[in-house]
Design a protein around this nucleic acid. Structure first.
Lengths: 248, 248
DNA sequence: TAGGGGAACTTGTACAAACAAGCGAGCACC
DNA sequence: GGTGCTCGCTTGTTTGTACAAGTTCCCCTA
């Protein structure tokens, strides 16, 4: 059962993407939308709040809402799962486990993953037949067994874990920067050592705030970019200073 | 005049950051908070929605809200303005215009900036005395004159434009990837040609959706990273495939 | 014709009420 | 001891109302 405001948001999004409301045009007023959909104004407000969060429309007190963009913003899963992102965008993709082993947690890992023993996995993923991503993931102890049961060429770890143990990734924190390719990165991705890679370090937790995994993903330059829409009032992305001298 | 729900959100955020509600603990229920602040439940919901959007708390139907993080998320301005970000974080910083010229808009610029003539500015910005960022910004024609009036070592273009002509940056779209340093990048930043840079391409518009600027910013690797918190239900960051062969 | 003053419109904030849906703990039963 | 079920609590959704605050545009006046 989808809620009312979500259905309204979907309809409005479709209208924007299909050009009924071109970029720069004004959206109908909340009162008009409420009448059109036979809903209360509060419900319509929830719907347009969804679109505002997606960066599709802007909003100012006193003035009508304005259409800002017409490109679809993808779901949460697509930021965490390479497979779900690639599939949703119609790319051919693959994946292969290169190495996998259990080891004691070290450094910041015990705190970050709330485990003493962790499972370390090195995966190489490809897009359109070309290797584009080296994934070094560390799983918390309590999911290690489930991950080990997966086949080496498992396409989507996220989906497989959901199906096998009902695990849902709910929250994530991501750090994005650029690093030179190391020897292993270079060999696996087929680039020169020292060439630029886009790095995404992420930590994921369940709904309960229980840590699941912590990963260091490195994309070949030019293969993938990250895109953010933000506005005054809502933006989750922030800049962070690094060491200024060394890479951590 | 700050609204009620914002004050409640501020108080709760302070309580989380100061450890009254440690990470992993449960937040009081909406009913309790409503009673404590003498507000309606809807108002409290608005307040916790702010914290959820910041990634500080997680939320599940039926269960109490859980504290997920205790790091502050910065404001919109800090993503657009190097100066405002640096100042808010207590860094020493500087900036210098290297080159500046008017020229006719070309390629995708007429559509993106809605101008026939644009102003191109090359700036070098430093953090803690070291050059970290090369900024190649193209301004729409209607702000060109105001930008040209700024001093060459203007610390914050965003703030200066607000003070001089009341211009407010309200929405932005950002593309983040990694690129090798070009000859000019390398010379200005003091790195080797081909070494990794973190690139942020952004387009900014006003409240009315009027395009202001389009910029290509390149950070020295290790100097700056981008950080995102997201959750099922709210995340504006998406991955995008590049060309797989060339850089655009 | 330029500018000031409003009136109508539109979004933002706040409160109240009711029901739906999911969670967790405790209890009874096997 | 373990399993399943029920009940109370908590968050999610929806409606309705009222007022505040900001914008837009028209009209009147100087």
């Amino acid at each position: 059962m989808v809620s009312r405001y979500e259905r309204i948001a979907d309809e409005l999004r479709d209208e924007i993407l299909s050009g009924v409301h071109p970029v720069g045009s004004q959206l109908p007023s909340e009162a008009e939308l409420a009448e059109r959909y036979g809903a209360a104004r509060g419900t319509v407000r929830q719907a347009v709040a969804v679109l505002a969060a997606e960066g599709l429309v802007g909003s100012r007190q006193g003035a009508r809402r304005i259409v800002l963009g017409n490109a679809r913003s993808q779901s949460f899963a697509e930021l965490h799962s390479f497979a779900q992102w690639a599939r949703a965008n119609g790319y051919r993709f693959g994946g292969q486990v290169i190495a996998q082993r259990r080891r004691p947690a070290s450094g910041a890992e015990p705190a970050r993953l709330a485990s003493e023993e962790v499972l370390e996995v090195l995966r190489l993923r490809s897009l359109e037949g070309e290797p584009v991503l080296v994934e070094r993931t560390v799983y918390a102890g309590w999911v290690a067994a489930a991950v080990e049961r997966l086949p080496a060429d498992c396409e989507s770890v996220t989906e497989a874990l959901y199906e096998s143990v009902g695990l849902v990734f709910a929250y994530g924190e991501h750090l994005i920067d650029a690093v030179p390719a190391g020897a292993q990165d270079a060999r696996l991705l087929g680039v020169r050592r020292g060439s630029p890679l886009l790095r995404q370090r992420r930590t994921t937790t369940t709904h309960e705030g229980r840590p699941v995994e912590s990963s260091d993903d490195r994309y070949r330059a030019g293969s993938v970019a990250f895109s953010i829409r933000n506005s005054i009032g809502a933006n989750p992305l922030v800049r962070q200073a690094g060491d200024l001298r060394f890479e951590r």
